[in-house]
């Protein structure tokens, strides 16, 4: 059933147009990138605040600061980076409407991201200073909080997506959303790397 054109007026008929599209043709793609723009601005402002506060101090971080063990933080980074590979399969497969690789990709991706959540929890537990110790502690904890928030919400999103994919039925128009989930997740991964380097290696 569809609107049909009355006789006597000129009409453009769009009844056969597809009901979804990939990439910048899709409004949600724009929504996601705008969300990422907002999030990136927040991360940039946090980083700027970090460097602004750093500019006031001659010793940085303040004496007596103990970071979480390097190997533990590196483990988180590795888990994050590993999660990119299966989500990349899913990303590739989505545009070809191949369900099986998407399912597997998301399952593995979710496992990797859950692993990152676990190591992150240990990381937080082993940080040797508090947010109320000094401004350094405050800003680093703020960065940790922001990223952990994204990490957990991203993991939950991956998990939900996995469930939906396995439960089915899967509509074709879910495919663009799958690609967008991947992009969001990569943002979570990529945004951590500079912060990780700064927190672990920035000393004067």
């Amino acid at each position: 059933m569809s609107e049909t054109a009355p006789v006597g007026r000129r009409f453009v008929d769009v009844s056969e147009l597809p009901m979804f599209a990939f990439g910048p043709r899709d409004p949600i793609w724009w929504g996601l990138w705008l969300l990422l723009a907002i999030e990136s601005t927040m991360f940039v402002l946090l980083a700027s605040s970090y460097f602004y506060l750093r500019g006031n101090e001659s010793t940085w971080p303040p004496p007596g600061v103990h970071q979480a063990p390097l190997w533990l933080t590196a483990l988180t980074v590795v888990a994050l980076l590993l999660s990119v590979i299966p989500t990349w399969w899913a990303f590739r497969a989505a545009i070809q409407f191949r369900l099986r690789p998407i399912q597997i990709g998301f399952l593995l991706g979710t496992l990797a991201s859950a692993a990152a959540c676990v190591t992150r929890a240990y990381e937080l537990a082993t940080i040797g200073y508090n947010w109320n110790s000094h401004a350094y502690g405050s800003i680093v904890w703020a960065i940790y909080f922001m990223h952990t928030f994204h990490l957990t919400s991203g993991t939950v999103e991956n998990a939900v997506m996995t469930v939906l994919l396995f439960k089915g039925p899967v509509e074709k128009k879910l495919m663009p959303d799958i690609r967008l989930s991947c992009i969001y997740w990569w943002f979570v991964v990529v945004s951590w790397i500079p912060f990780w380097i700064v927190i672990m290696f920035d000393k004067s």
């Binding site: 009409f11 453009v12 769009v14 056969e16 147009l17 597809p18």
Partner: peptide, 13 residues
């Protein structure tokens, strides 16, 4: 052009 395309072709894609 737009008109032609849409009036005579089923699907823009």
């Amino acid at each position: 052009t737009l008109l032609m395309l849409l009036l005579f072709c089923a699907c823009a894609n």
